[in-house]
């Protein structure tokens, strides 16, 4: 697209060996994972095991992403984004292609996971995401291009992971890479200055996207009203309204604030649900935990409810990494 037209990287076939010009490491291409504006990501085999390799054409933008990944890899204690291994150039028929190597995240796209496992996961995964964002913000960064495509759910217990730090911006600067639906500037609900509330708006829009898989365009005017209507007319979104509203209007200064309120809301809701349908429990954990109980003499239903609620509470805590 630039005036000095850049040559695209043609797809690299399976089995190709990529060797780095500077560090001399080699990588065996296994398959293509995806591609975007800046390059293509491949799964590759190496002495480090399975890794993800992003091959681009523009060494400045590849370097820019590496700058962010390096900084994030230095943060102790938390895993923020894929772990960074190295950056190098690959020479292929006389041309140089910059690439970098990072941890392979063997996960499932966010919405694929939610559709398979159930809508109740939205709240839990958002809690996790908010915890990670809180850590990221504390380090002085804003994610920027937060959207379902950049989120994967990995492992057991399911953990949300993010990819593509192309939009990650130092606090106080302007966000350069974003996706309209998740960008508050597009909705006329704020600027593009990198601050925690920028990401929190995107988190709210990810939840909206779960309710409206096809997304929707902005209205001619009064986007605020329009979005509130969208929330209210969705069975799924309605219950999150107070939190979504605050996030969309930039009322949360910190991810931890939003997280706490979402946590409280989920707690209230879970206990209520349990009270109403103890017998038709559809939660796997709850089912597993109540089965032995049923064999015993009839336990009072109040106790069952309390127990289930209690276990669920701990399970949630566990999932969002509060304890253990």
């Amino acid at each position: 697209m630039t005036g000095t037209s850049k040559n695209q990287v043609a797809d690299v076939p399976r089995g190709t060996t990529i060797s780095g010009k500077w560090n001399k490491q080699t990588y065996q291409i296994m398959k293509k994972l995806g591609s975007g504006a800046l390059g293509t990501v491949y799964l590759a085999d190496s002495v480090k095991g399975r890794v993800a390799l992003k091959i681009g054409t523009d060494s400045m933008s590849i370097t820019s992403e590496v700058n962010v990944l390096k900084q994030l890899s230095m943060v102790q204690g938390t895993v923020l984004g894929p772990f960074f291994y190295e950056i190098d150039d690959w020479e292929r028929s006389g041309k140089k292609f910059p690439f970098y190597v990072m941890e392979y995240i063997d996960g499932e796209p966010l919405f694929t996971f939610i559709n398979r496992r159930g809508k109740e996961w939205i709240g839990i995964l958002m809690l996790q995401l908010l915890r990670d964002l809180s850590a990221l913000h504390r380090e002085g960064w804003v994610f920027g291009d937060l959207k379902p495509d950049n989120l994967l759910v990995e492992g057991s217990p399911p953990t949300v992971r993010w990819l593509d730090v192309g939009g990650t911006t130092p606090m106080g600067r302007s966000v350069k890479e974003f996706t309209e639906f998740f960008d508050r500037g597009y909705w006329g609900l704020g600027n593009r200055v990198a601050e925690p509330s920028y990401d929190l708006f995107s988190v709210a829009m990810i939840v909206l996207n779960a309710g409206y898989p096809k997304r929707f365009d902005r209205p001619k005017k009064d986007a605020e009203h329009y979005l509130m209507n969208k929330i209210e007319s969705s069975q799924l979104l309605k219950e999150y309204k107070p939190i979504l509203r605050k996030a969309l209007l930039g009322k949360y200064g910190y991810a931890s604030e939003m997280r706490q309120e979402l946590f409280a809301l989920l707690q209230g809701e879970k206990t209520n649900v349990r009270k109403n349908k103890v017998n038709s429990s559809h939660s796997r954990v709850a089912a597993r935990q109540t089965r032995p109980k049923a064999k015993k003499k009839r336990t009072g239903w109040v106790e069952t409810v309390l127990l289930v609620a209690f276990l669920l509470f701990f399970y949630t805590l566990y999932l969002v990494g509060h304890i253990f």
Binding site: W22, S59, M60, T63, S64, V66, N67, K70, I87, D88, D89, P98
Partner: peptide, 9 residues
Amino acid sequence: PPDKRGQVV
């Protein structure tokens, strides 16, 4: 070298 490019960026 790739490691030096970071500063330019």
